[in-house]
Design a protein around this nucleic acid. Sequence first.
DNA 1: GTGTGCACAAGTGGGAAAAAGTGGTTTCTA
DNA 2: TAGAAACCACTTTTTCCCACTTGTGCACAC
Lengths: 150, 150
Amino acid sequence: MSNFLGSHAINMDAKGRLAIPAKVREELAQLCGGRIVLTANADEERCLLLYPEPEWEELRPKIEALPNMNKAARRLQRLLLGNAAQMELDSAGRILVPPTLRAHAQLEKKLMLIGLGKKLELWSEERWLAWLDESSDDEDMPPEMEALSL
Amino acid sequence: MSNFLGSHAINMDAKGRLAIPAKVREELAQLCGGRIVLTANADEERCLLLYPEPEWEELRPKIEALPNMNKAARRLQRLLLGNAAQMELDSAGRILVPPTLRAHAQLEKKLMLIGLGKKLELWSEERWLAWLDESSDDEDMPPEMEALSL
DNA sequence: GTGTGCACAAGTGGGAAAAAGTGGTTTCTA
DNA sequence: TAGAAACCACTTTTTCCCACTTGTGCACAC
């Protein structure tokens, strides 16, 4: 079972290639032989989602099955399905990010790769730092969260 | 069961390594063989949290299970999971703090390690001292706290 | 009772080997 | 023909290990 954790600062080269950090690469190798799916994020944060292929294949039917008379559901489908790119790590452990996705998340040279358990998120460093600085609004916190004791 | 107490002033060297105080090191050794998880703190105080691995493994599923269509929950996940680094004390009882975490808590040379029962907190000395000086606002105290008699 | 010194443990720093990341060139394919 | 994939070589970073310095506690002597 996948269990990505931690954040890594990585660079994208002029060709749009980015080297997956060795630790993550290892995990991807034994989890899915380096076969991954990269797609856009659905919520307001403009970042990319990186799934190991098996994890994606579990998620995809659920997205397809959403009742798409609903506007929010249509949005989710268009973003996640419509942007999904299947790819494989090259011999040096790098991936080539498609231009459309690069544009979507406004990726330039400096990026952040964030492990979130079953998936990873890919942010432009600038946006990530800006997001970190945003103040959290404690309002609508789910009850499970209020009960947490860290 | 872990029971860290007390504060220790410690130094980080130029490579980002920091020596865990011998007393804490002992406790960590018999508790988890020196296997720990270091991550960012979720609230506004920019410090790091240090969990013995078993303690973390108890907490992690609860965080992963939060409903992440909720914004506050996503924030917590990105901070805690997205910054978590699993590591082991080296042969000299030191840990290497990853650059991203170093930056997050603005750690420089002088640090404070604070024992808080099941976990430890790691602060830059400067921030720790500044925090001590801050006045607390006694407003919204949870009822369990109001009932305390110190 | 106080001070000095010795010994061991803790903490610090640096260097060498290995691994990871980077960039360019060539080949292939659409 | 342009863009992507594979290949290869170089540079940088990381990790591991060893040696040195500092601090602390205990014992013994004065």
